[in-house]
Amino acid sequence: MGITETVHDGRGALTERPAAAVVGVVAGYLLLDLLVKLAGTSVFFMGVKVIGGSLTISSLAAMALDGLLVGLAVGLAGIGLSMTYSILDFANFAHGDTVTAGAFVGWVAAYVAAGLGTGAPLADLVMFDTGLQLSVAMTPLAVLLGLIVAAVGTVAVVLLIDRLAYRPMRGADSISLLIASIGVALALRYVVAFLFGTQSSGVSSKGFQLVLLDLAGQRPVALTDNELALLVVSVALMLGIHLLLQRTKLGKAMRAMADNEDLARVTGIPTERVVRLTWILGGALAGVGGYLLVLESGTISFNFGWILLLLIFAAVILGGIGSIYGAMAGGVVIGLVDSMALIWLPSGLTRAAAFFALIVVLLVRPEGIFGGVTTA
């Protein structure tokens, strides 16, 4: 009887949720293929390789580490987008270009601080034309100053945007605000392009490597000083956001406003002040996230935040729209998938794998990983 019920339940699940069943089959195939690759063998059927290949554990660990680092920065930037959605109730398409603006402001400050004693012209320092390559180990004070300026500068940018564009539309519907944010995004992007040009610039390089894993003659997995800074700062800021939401009056006010703005206003919560502090927190995190991504990758360009915006939206949707913890978790998942998809796909298609993972999660859990959990 038990076996009969099990079979019946299995058939019911296949009938009611065929997409989930397909996802399970694909996931099982990829896992089996990964294990066979790690074993260094292949399985053929009628002369065609079905699964397998060659993959070392150190290569897998390096991909996972890279994906984790990118995912943390994406999750950090995604917190601001999630805050904006949960409290202001609109999808802010200017968020990616806010990330870009913060990164440029921070790196200009870092470059000027590092190059003042070299005799290089100030104009060349501002335009990243001196060939300097900064790192946490070689120029720690300049990198730290840039990080602070990235946060403060981005806050100034988002407060100015809110004052000029969003505050006059505070009572408008979410579609109007979304369209306004697209206009803000275009304006920000081309202001940055006008000031700094459209070419990518190299601004940072690694200073030292900390070996994390060295497997019996295989290529070691190492963490550079810049990557270590990204890891530590991202985790510390995420922990700080958690404590702010759960332990402070501001966090309680933000959660109350995200749940019911009208009720929050009636109970005496200063909603306009909460909105302003939301912009401050979200802007600071966006600027820091962009700055850290450039620190890790080594290059900066006028449209990198716009390109990154797709991953940020994917992370927020995957984690559960309106959930800050979802943005954190979604960023890590998207980063890992984007990096580890190299096992099966060419480098140019890994971004598609990240969005495929988003679709898969939504098929299995439509509300997202932390669906139903708002600002808290």
Rank of each mutant, 00 (worst) to 15 (best):
M340V: 15
A156D: 05
L223W: 02
A376C: 00
L342I: 04
A151T: 12
P366T: 06
V108K: 04
R17G: 06
A193H: 10
F208E: 05
V233E: 00
Q209G: 08
L308I: 09
T271P: 02
V211E: 14
G106D: 12
D129V: 01
G287C: 07
V43R: 11
T248R: 04
D262Q: 14
I300L: 11
L195M: 07
M83S: 01
Q246N: 13
F194L: 14
L178H: 02
A61G: 06
V36A: 12
A187E: 03
L65A: 10
P168N: 07
A222R: 12
A253K: 04
L345G: 02
N92T: 05
G322N: 05
P140F: 09
G326K: 05
T299F: 15
F208R: 07
L144I: 15
E227T: 00
A185K: 11
A229H: 11
M257K: 09
K252W: 08
V337G: 05
T100D: 05
I369N: 01
R11M: 14
L293G: 12
W107A: 03
L177S: 04
A94F: 08
L277I: 15
A253M: 12
L134K: 12
L147E: 05
V143W: 06
V70C: 03
V364P: 06
V158A: 10
G67F: 09
G67S: 12
G240F: 01
M1R: 09
L177C: 04
T271M: 05
P140V: 09
G40L: 12
F45K: 01
V23F: 13
L55H: 10
